[in-house]
């Protein structure tokens, strides 16, 4: 059994603001991330899949994983505004917690379109919002 991790990068802007909170509360909770015009990050996305190696010596076909991540994730969010351009969040706030869950959901929903068999399986989604702020979720935590 192997775990294979692929690292991607994307750039997005966002604004952290909840419609369920007052202006004052938003300012208190999110601080400078509540800036009305938003701000951006160079995000790093780490996708880990696990499985046994096949006869070709491969646990995860990286060409297929790259195709999936580019089509379902990077093609949708890279160089976009998460609040204005991406319809993944509804009333939820585009924090990196919610972004990691949304990415995991989309990968799980579309996983079988490229990985049809029992293996490999999605194992983890990890977002580095900055080199100092890192968000990791196991695939089995994602519905």
């Amino acid at each position: 059994m192997f775990r294979v991790t692929r690292r991607y990068q994307f750039a997005c802007s966002h604004r952290l603001h909840s419609d369920f909170l007052s202006e004052t509360e938003n300012s208190l909770v999110y601080g400078k991330c509540n800036n009305p015009y938003g701000h951006g990050h160079n995000y790093v996305l780490r996708i880990t899949a696990r499985g046994p190696a096949n006869a070709a010596g491969q646990a995860v076909n990286i060409q297929l994983l790259d195709d999936l991540v580019k089509r379902e994730i990077l093609g949708v969010i890279d160089h976009r505004n998460l609040n204005a351009d991406v319809d993944w969040f509804g009333v939820a706030v585009p924090t990196s917690e919610n972004l990691a869950v949304a990415i995991g959901q989309r990968l799980k929903q579309n996983w079988n379109s490229v990985f049809a068999g029992d293996w490999p399986r999605l194992d983890q989604v990890c977002i580095e919002e900055t080199p100092r702020n890192i968000f990791l979720i196991n695939a089995d935590e994602i519905e």
Binding site: M1, F2, R3, V4, T5, G51
Partner: peptide
Amino acid sequence: PDLWVDYCGEGTEEGLC
């Protein structure tokens, strides 16, 4: 830096190291 593999022996069925 963008691609790595973890291996923990054959005993780890779920690949959890």
